[in-house]
């Protein structure tokens, strides 16, 4: 008697909202990675340009252009990072109550989620104020 394999279709993740949220959560990590790479490039470009411009003042303009791309599009890259960070943080805080080592009711889980969001917003604001104070 033959048995028929019953494996998921290649587009299984489109089937249910829960699968989509999962993909949303995992792929928002890529946005953050792009932002991280951008910052690495940013710092690298500044250090590099100091050295290169000091020794080779008449360097190829194309190279210079490429080197300074991140400095030009900083707004775009920061937006990408910001969106990624917001999605990732909220979805991760959403699954956080599940990981706690005690059994919680749905209501308690929602409460913990809202508390975590409040703490996150509070800490972010505090950091923002401190940063602004030290910059200004």
């Amino acid at each position: 008697m033959k048995k028929l394999a019953n494996t998921p279709a290649p587009d299984w993740w489109k089937e249910k909202p829960a699968y989509k949220i999962y993909y949303f959560r995992e792929y928002s990590g890529i946005l953050i990675a792009i932002w991280g790479l951008y910052w690495l490039w940013f710092i690298g470009a500044i250090i590099f340009s100091r050295i290169i411009l000091a020794y080779f003042p008449d360097i190829d303009p194309v190279f210079k252009y490429i080197l300074f791309i991140p400095l030009k599009y900083y707004f775009l890259f920061n937006c990408i990072g910001f969106i990624g960070a917001i999605i990732h943080t909220i979805t991760w805080l959403g699954v956080m109550p599940e990981i706690l080592p005690f059994n919680l009711s749905k209501k308690q889980r929602h409460l913990i989620f809202s508390l975590l969001i409040l703490v996150w917003l509070g800490l972010s604001t505090l950091l923002f104020i401190l940063l602004m104070n030290s910059l200004l």
């Binding site: 249910k16 829960a18 699968y19 999962y22 995992e26 699954v95 599940e98 990981i99 706690l100 080592p101």
Partner: peptide
């Protein structure tokens, strides 16, 4: 990977996804 759908379909509210995370 914590997709979480197992807990959504469980007819007995066992919450296997939560159990796995706690086991981690």
């Amino acid at each position: 990977n914590f997709v979480g759908e197992c807990s959504n379909v469980c007819p007995k509210n066992v919450d296997p996804a939560g159990a796995i995370q706690k086991m981690k």
